[in-house]
Amino acid sequence: MKAIVTVMLKPGVLDPQGKAIAHALGTLGFAGVNDVRAGKVIELELTETDPVRARAQAEDMARKLLANTVIESFRVQVDG
């Protein structure tokens, strides 16, 4: 079973990478981009087959290692 963990900087934490991407998009002529936030996506291939337990596992991993909750929030999506 695949679990996808998306890690993003929390709102309020400056994201210079997002700002740089927004600036670059602007200079390339893409108008109407109000804000850009850059994060990361981590794909986990789990042996667990129960979606509830898989989600719990992934959330535990995210809290302990994949995200730093001082600065980052995370979201787990489980693909059956």
């Binding site: 900087l9 934490v13 400056l14 210079p16 990478q17 740089a20 730093n68 001082v70 600065i71």
Partner: peptide
């Protein structure tokens, strides 16, 4: 030390990237 929780806060990418 910050990641281990022995000191508060975190170190982010340099503002200049």
């Amino acid at each position: 030390l910050t990641e281990a929780g022995l000191l508060p806060g975190a170190l982010l990418r340099n503002a200049s990237l």
